[in-house]
Each structure stands twice: as structure tokens, then as C-alpha cells.
């Protein structure tokens, strides 16, 4: 079973040279740590950065320079700063090549829920609704099973939706899935040591398994 860093490491392999990439809060943020040498990408932070760098060295934090998770960050050579309307303009116009974000639930037809648990947790959608409505290439990083052991890959989301028919790929602690246009989670890879049986038990939505499913290499 993959831990959070394992999920991030697997997703990092989807990042290709020359991409502009938006990383959401949580596991997606960790992806930046695993982008292979020689793959040049620019990270977009929706509060207004292209070319975001790593955390600053101790003592060099700048209160005016944060990422979308409100963490202090740095700028790399060639970076640019812009306002919030421009930031979501480039997202809406599909200039950002890849979006990686977390989810509470994903359904077999590509719906995603990640902003609200009615009566309990209402933090808001931030930029997630804009991102999922416009991005052409979205990867969801999530835990497949909740603390109670219930699957979060569902026939239909039970929580309020963030977007509809927008998710095409999901990476979890157990495996990698494509969501097919006609519906269903198509298993592509198993996490190291995970059996097909374990994956079946952890997938409430329609699961499609064709032929031998390889174990992922990290």
C-alpha cells in the first residue's frame, strides 16, 4: 500500500517536460518533490504565481510570497506574478496543462466531491470548481478507503459535487485508474503488494479489469 509520498511519487511520472502544472493542497503539493531530473515544468499557484520554487531557507521567509496553501515559498528564475483574475483566466483558457488535486469522493462517471460535508465541514471550494470545470487534464490524488473502511470510488458521489464528468485519472494508495468516457474505473496498475481482491473490495463503483494488471514501478 502506498503512503502519501508514494502516491505523489507515482503521479510525478505523469508530469512531462514543458508542462505548466497546478498542484492542489495536500498530497498534490508533495508531487513537486518527485519530479524527475531533466523534466522542466513550471508550477502554477492560483493565488498568482508561475514558476513557483521550494520553501525558503530559514530566515528568508517573505510574508508577501505564499502559495495557494498559504505556505511561504520562493520564486524560480523566469517566474511571474499576476492577479487572481489573470490566474483563473489562464486556467479557464486551458493554458495550464495538468491539474493535480485531492478528493473526498470520485464517481465512476468522473464526478468529484471535495469541498463540503453538509453540517460538518464547510471550508469552501477555493479554486477547485474553476480548475475542474476547465482543466483538460486532471489527476486526482486520494485515499481510496476512508477511516471506516468504506470506498471513496463510488457509483455516484454522496457529497455535494465540485464538478461533473471531469476526472479522467485517479491515483490512490491501492492503484492507478482511468475513468472511461462511458463510465467505470479501469484499473491500470496495482500498488506494490496489493492484490486484485483488495482492489475489488475497496472499489464501490464499477471496476473494469482487463488482462494482467501490472504492479507499478516507482
Amino acid at each position: 500500500m502506498l503512503d502519501k509520498n508514494g502516491i505523489a511519487k507515482r503521479i510525478a511520472r505523469e508530469v512531462k517536460d514543458g508542462m505548466y502544472v497546478n498542484l492542489g493542497i495536500g498530497i498534490p503539493t508533495l508531487v513537486a518533490n518527485y519530479i524527475p531530473e531533466g523534466i522542466n515544468v513550471e508550477l502554477q499557484s492560483e493565488n498568482g504565481i508561475l514558476g513557483m520554487g521550494p520553501f525558503p531557507f530559514e530566515g528568508e521567509e517573505d510574508a508577501d510570497l505564499i502559495n495557494a496553501g498559504k505556505q511561504t515559498v520562493t520564486l524560480l528564475n523566469g517566474s511571474s506574478i499576476f492577479d487572481s483574475a489573470t490566474s483563473f483566466g489562464m486556467i479557464r483558457a486551458q493554458k495550464v496543462d495538468l491539474t493535480i488535486l485531492g478528493a473526498m469522493e470520485v464517481s465512476e462517471n468522473g464526478d468529484i466531491a471535495n469541498w463540503k460535508i453538509p453540517g460538518k465541514m464547510v471550508k469552501g471550494m477555493g479554486g477547485a470548481m474553476d480548475l475542474v470545470a476547465s482543466a483538460k487534464n486532471i489527476i486526482v490524488a486520494m485515499q481510496q478507503v476512508n477511516k471506516a473502511g468504506e470506498s471513496k470510488l463510488l457509483p455516484k458521489c454522496s457529497l455535494p459535487l465540485t464538478g461533473v464528468h471531469c476526472i479522467k485519472k485517479v491515483v490512490t494508495e491501492l492503484g492507478v485508474y482511468d475513468i472511461l468516457p462511458e463510465g467505470g474505473f479501469k484499473l491500470l496498475e496495482r500498488a506494490p503488494g496489493i492484490s486484485i481482491e483488495q482492489i475489488k473490495k475497496a472499489t464501490a463503483g464499477k471496476l473494469i479489469i482487463e488482462g494482467d494488471i501490472p504492479e507499478m514501478s516507482l
Binding site: E46, D83, S84, A85, S87, F88, G89, I91, R92, W115, K116, V122, G124, M125, G126, G127, A128, M129, D130
Partner: peptide
């Protein structure tokens, strides 16, 4: 609660 891009663009 409204999407962040919607918020920015409604101001704009």
C-alpha cells in the same frame, strides 16, 4: 461560498 475564479472575475 463561491468559486475563487468566479469571485475574482465578478470583481473584474
Amino acid at each position: 461560498l463561491i468559486p475563487q475564479g468566479t469571485l475574482a472575475t465578478r470583481c473584474m
